[in-house]
């Protein structure tokens, strides 16, 4: 069981003094799976990643990475097949992008030609001979991604991977992620960005060190059971008053009102609205990830 999972955590806690940074977390990730950890700053995401990497040891619980203790003696053997992109990645400013990547390639004992190809892959070929100190935030992030990809990793830990990336770079990043997953790599990423999270098979929500929920996005939506909001824009406000009088709606201004409905009542609600005269537009807004987090957090507190 343990061996077949790429990442396996059981009852993992990390305590500094009296305060828990991570508390009693269970998480297992299968080969080829992509899991995103979501949570506010200080929720314990980065600490969880650091423990999975073996950089810090848990106060309690058990962690296995590729079937081994990540902080143990045998960990060195598979470290070269693990990619890590830390939050706010930094490099020595005096070195060029090419030198940085070749330095890391040497440490991972990867052929240096592979490092040059990766620079091209992340779109830094033109800036390869410039010092990292002159790079923009997005370029540093891409260089960070390139070093994580060295040596065809089987497991990737990506902490806030797309901060500072423009739309184009983001797309490049998602393409890389898709390639990795096709190659059977396992991904664990922590992020705030919805577009990152949509790439994941499962989402783990963390709050104050605890893992509140973990599942696919529709599953989490069902779990939270949050209402959808339907926003209706009409041509004539007065004509709609009769319709809205029978329902609990909230008028945003003279021509727009909002109503809520449960997830399974969505089709019925839209049908009834569409019968209304002079509807200009209907917007269906599913609960946002923030709503979802807050709701699951609230439920956990009760």
């Amino acid at each position: 069981m343990t061996i077949s999972q790429t990442i396996f955590m059981e009852g993992v806690s990390k305590r500094y003094g009296d305060s828990y940074v991570v508390r009693d977390v269970d998480l297992s990730i299968a080969p080829g799976e992509c899991v995103a950890i979501v949570g506010h700053n200080g929720a314990g995401k980065s600490t969880l990643v650091k423990m999975a990497l073996g950089l810090i040891t848990p106060t309690a619980g058990r962690i296995a990475l590729l079937g081994e203790n990540p902080a143990g003696r045998h960990a060195m053997a598979f470290r070269s097949r693990i990619g890590f992109l830390p939050e706010n990645v930094a490099f020595s400013a005096a070195m060029t992008g090419r030198e940085v990547l070749r330095f890391y390639a040497r440490l991972k004992q990867v052929p240096l030609g592979g490092a040059d190809r990766l620079l091209e892959r992340v779109g830094l070929a033109a800036a390869a001979r410039r010092r990292v100190g002159t790079y923009s935030k997005g370029m540093r992030q891409r260089l960070g991604l390139a070093q994580a990809l060295l040596g065809e990793p089987r497991v990737l830990f990506l902490d806030e991977p797309t901060t500072g990336l423009d739309i184009e770079s983001r797309q490049m990043f998602y393409d890389v992620m898709a390639e990795l997953r096709d190659a059977g790599a396992t991904l664990l990423l922590s992020s705030h960005a919805l577009s990152d999270i949509e790439q994941a098979d499962r989402i783990a929500i963390m709050k104050a060190g605890r893992m509140l929920a973990c599942g696919a996005l529709p599953e989490l939506r069902r779990l939270a059971d949050l209402p959808l909001r339907i926003r209706v824009h009409v041509v004539d406000g007065n004509a709609a008053r009769e319709f809205t009088a029978r329902r609990s709606v909230q008028w945003l201004d003279d021509l727009r009102f909002e109503m809520t409905c449960a997830d399974d009542g969505k089709v019925e609600a839209i049908r009834s609205v569409s019968l209304l005269q002079g509807v200009r537009d209907i917007e269906v807004m599913p609960p946002t990830l923030v709503d979802l987090c807050d709701e699951l957090t609230r439920e956990a507190a009760e």
Binding site: L55, M76, R79, P86, V89, A90, S92, Y104, L107
Partner: peptide, 14 residues
């Protein structure tokens, strides 16, 4: 302080 140590220690070296 610069944040380069964390990444370095995730590499296969002690």
């Amino acid at each position: 302080d610069r944040g380069t140590l964390l990444l370095l220690l995730s590499y296969p070296l002690s």
